[in-house]
Design a protein around this nucleic acid. Structure first.
Length: 255
DNA sequence: ATGGTTGCTTAGCAA
């Protein structure tokens, strides 16, 4: 089972790249974040013509997540189902065979201490409670997404400069740790304990060309899925060329 | 760098 995760920063701006990505990698499921459109503007036909099924949770202008699957999914659900009022479309899940695939676009948080920062921390706590309510760590669960958190200093190009800043603050890292403590492991770090690899580079100031990146896009998995993990890699080529997203896709292959 | 770039929407916000 090959699963890919990509913050496309507008699916319509990235449509040609996304379709070409499917042709090149042929993932069983591609989890998208930042669609930046509602269903009325989502390019269903292009993905269907490529042989994929689309499950979307769109939003006008901001956010929006989707599962693009080579096979029909079951039990597709959007949001956390906790009754909390939430206008943001940031979470979708479905079942691909015996694997629960969960796709999240964690709030950016803007800056430490901002209203959006506390919204982010609360949203992460809601996601943790959702996991605890709906799954067990013995289930086959793969949780992917743009977490907007660099798990450790190894995941940051300038740890001293980023210390305590948004994407790196201790409260954010603690919230991620609490999610992992449900029973999820960072698949990239499992395979590469010491490797520096980034998934996001700021558009500004030649961030990619200078490799000023952060590893904030993660594939987490429960122990039975970690046992099945064969390969995991970042497709840096997608950050090159004309009109890239500011994020590169990450791909994991499970037996 | 209270900057720099991109996308959506059309001047300002979000990232």
């Amino acid at each position: 089972m090959k699963a890919a995760c990509w913050n496309v920063n507008s699916i319509n701006s990235r449509l040609d790249r996304a379709v070409a990505f499917l042709g090149r990698h042929r993932p069983d499921v591609l989890c998208l974040q930042e669609l930046k459109c509602l269903e009325d503007k989502f390019p269903f036909d292009a993905f269907r013509n490529a042989g994929y099924h689309c499950y979307t949770h769109g939003q006008k202008t901001y956010n929006g997540v989707a599962l693009i699957s080579a096979h029909p999914l079951t039990d597709v659900r959007a949001g956390f189902l906790d009754g909390v009022k939430d206008d943001d479309s940031r979470f979708i899940s479905g079942k691909l065979g015996d694997v629960n695939v969960l796709c999240g676009y964690i709030p950016n948080g803007q800056s430490v201490g901002a209203d959006k920062y506390y919204f982010k921390l609360n949203w992460l706590d809601r996601m943790r409670r959702h996991l605890e309510a709906e799954y067990r760590n013995t289930d086959n669960v793969v949780l992917v997404g743009d977490f907007n958190i660099a798990p450790e200093d190894l995941d940051v190009y300038d740890p001293a400069g980023w210390r305590g800043k948004i994407l790196c603050s201790q409260k954010e890292r603690d919230a991620l740790t609490a999610i992992k403590e449900f029973g999820l492991e960072d698949c990239f770090r499992n395979k590469f304990p010491q490797t520096v690899e980034y998934t996001w580079w700021d558009y500004r100031s030649m961030g990619f060309q200078k490799n000023l990146g952060l590893r904030i896009d993660l594939i987490l998995a429960t122990p039975p899925m970690v046992k099945r993990l064969e390969r995991i890699y970042v497709d840096r080529d997608e950050r090159k060329g004309e009109k890239p997203s500011d994020h590169a896709p990450i791909i994991a292959e499970f037996i």
